[in-house]
Amino acid sequence: MMNNAWRWLVRILRAAVPLVLLAGGIASLAYGVARHTAVVSVEQEIEIDLAAPPGMEFPGVEGGAPGFGPPGFEPGMAAPDFPPPFLQLPPELSKVKEKVIVSEPSSELTLIREVTFGGVVRLDTGVLWRTYTGDPPSLCPT
């Protein structure tokens, strides 16, 4: 009985290094899959609507004090158009496209997929930068 136990202990000790390494490998794999992220920045084109959102009105028209609102407005009158017609933009100018930099965390699995086609690079500033917008490239640059 003691002999058997001793034999098993020796076997486990012999396997200690591989077991520790295996546990480390599994832990690394699990951490990489489940938790590890990195912030990746990308330039995106967004559309900004310059038209006043619906429901906006001159400040103070709802029973506000005299002096607020457009010229000639008295408290109790129907709310005037906002902004006044001469300040309203024509529809073709009411929306503009702007390029903005968006930073968001990417999981390691996403990063692995992205490096396979050169989708992420590191800039000199240390920022991780996504090299494409829209459809990813099909091949890596090398």
Partner: peptide
């Protein structure tokens, strides 16, 4: 970056 998945 540390490649945890590849190393693991």
């Amino acid at each position: 970056l540390v490649p945890y998945v590849a190393l693991g």
